[in-house]
């Protein structure tokens, strides 16, 4: 199942709508990294609210997205990690280190807008 990617202003928003196979997650990674260039995006939000499980593969691949997008000059925020999913991730030892997370889409957008303003005024 393909994840729709919406362009909103300078940001790309990918909303995961169901459980994803490993191939779907890899496809999402490649699509986001490519579209950051195509749309000259400054930020990427990945909404994982509907993702049933964040296992080592999903976590590792989303971490790769964040790092690859950063190398392309934009920022990534993962939003919507549910309490039960966070609980399981902590038990597993999956920390998403080096990746920005926000509570939900609204907070994620607010974060990106603060952070791109800050970098413009620098």
């Amino acid at each position: 199942m393909e994840v729709p990617i919406l362009k909103q202003g300078a940001y790309l928003i990918a909303t995961i709508q169901s459980a994803l196979t490993d191939a779907d997650i890899v496809h999402l990674r490649d699509a986001l990294v490519e579209q950051v260039g195509r749309y000259r995006a400054l930020g990427v939000i990945i909404d994982v609210t509907s993702l049933d499980v964040m296992d080592s593969f999903a976590t590792g691949t989303l971490q790769d997205v964040a790092h690859m997008v950063r190398l392309r000059g934009a920022e990534t925020v993962i939003v919507g990690i549910q309490p039960d999913v966070a609980f399981a991730m902590v038990h597993m030892g999956l920390t998403l280190e080096g990746v920005t997370t926000s509570l939900d889409l609204e907070e994620g957008l607010a974060y990106l807008s603060r952070s791109s303003k800050a970098s413009r005024s620098r």
């Binding site: 049933d52 499980v53 964040m54 080592s56 309490p83 609980f87 399981a88 038990h91």
Partner: peptide, 17 residues
């Protein structure tokens, strides 16, 4: 409880992979 069901689902995901 839902949180424990998520732990089980996560473990199954790893084992199946």
């Amino acid at each position: 409880p839902a949180a424990m069901a998520t732990l089980v689902a996560t473990a199954i995901s790893e084992l199946a992979r």
